[in-house]
Design a protein around this nucleic acid. Structure first.
Lengths: 194, 194
DNA sequence: TTGGCAAACTAACACTATTAGTTTTAAAAT
DNA sequence: ATTTTAAAACTAATAGTGTTAGTTTGCCAA
């Protein structure tokens, strides 16, 4: 009963499909095997363990996210690029909830492998901020600030922490948040140039 | 073998102790029972299920967090209050990693009970921002912005997403993030007042 | 002293991941 | 064409989650 033509890649794609469909960041091996028409332990002929599969999905998610961001900011600079980036970031996170949740649950502080995979994700923001003529050090700082705003917003919206006054005008809040970032950055730039 | 004097409260405290010690947001019923000197199913004489226990711990965590924030901002206003709040928020989250992780993993969008428990947590920020003379609507927006920055920062630091250039100067980044919020807010206030 | 009830227990089930050992089958080697 | 071999499926079993059902224990109050 060998060889149904199953490959690691087909397993990965099935897992991704589930995550994209359900919005959950994980899939059990049982459910995954069921969808592939095999028994659970047979998966171990193709993958080492769940952690490895998670890494594969993680890599896929990162690549998709990065490609999305690059497409969204291509040809744009400064504030326009920041706004487009923020828009793309939010759209991706809400439209690919499962993948985004996975991205934001995998790398733990001491997992060098996951951190390395995530590097391209950091570079997208750094690229954008390099238009402003900030020092290397300041780019590192402001990259964190922008990332904090975007993730903090999405994460808490997802958790239900932004329900105050109903779910009042989340898009207006997002707009204000980005404008806040830009105003803060402009204030910093004025100080530095002077 | 009835009556070891075990109560729901003692179970809660043991669970909290574990979470505070380990930094993990959860404890297995097996481990919890082991620490209490009973067998796992005996826990069900005191709690309905894990979810209920989570709620209890959640309530405890919220109360502790809120008390901490109120103490830190007492007597302070405007920028001073914001800075003190941000400081306290960060300290709590890093020194009570397990409880903070729990707070930021429990309420899912459709869990009204958890959302209700979390209300005091939202009010602390709203109190602070009400010093600025913003409209109700703007307070709701800016409260989200501040919360987004704080949580986004801590969450990603915890996940290892801020390791860029080593773990360069995280405290400087935090300072810049808060200053960014204040500058953004001041810009908004100038616009409004005209 | 004797019920009765709260609170412990044991035994079992369902669902997770995982390992060991076995069989099947497709493709490569004779 | 047949044999061999190795990948890829399988079954059976273990350990760790939470949980339920049914049983025993022991304290306290009638």
């Amino acid at each position: 009963m060998a060889a149904k033509g199953l490959t690691k890649d087909k397993i990965l794609m099935q897992a991704v499909a589930y995550i994209e469909d359900t919005g959950q960041p994980t899939i059990s091996l049982h459910e995954l095997a069921r969808r592939l028409g095999i028994k659970t332990p047979s998966l171990y002929n193709h993958i080492a363990n769940t952690k490895e599969l998670q890494y594969e999905i993680f890599r896929y998610a990162i690549e998709k996210f990065v490609a999305n961001q690059q497409a969204a900011t291509k040809g744009k600079t400064k504030d326009d690029a920041v706004k487009a980036f923020a828009e793309a970031y939010y759209s991706f996170a809400t439209q690919n909830k499962g993948l985004y949740r996975l991205i934001m649950s995998i790398p733990s502080e001491h997992d060098e492998r996951a951190k390395e995979m995530a590097v391209p994700l950091l570079n997208t923001v750094i690229d954008i901020l390099s238009d402003y003529g900030l020092s290397e050090e300041n780019i590192a700082h402001w990259q964190r600030v922008l990332r904090a705003i975007l993730h903090g917003f999405i994460s808490q919206e997802d958790l239900g922490y932004f329900y105050y006054y109903g779910s009042m005008d989340l898009s207006k809040s997002r707009e204000i948040a980005i404008q806040c970032f830009l105003d803060g950055l402009h204030t910093e730039l004025k100080k530095t140039i002077h």
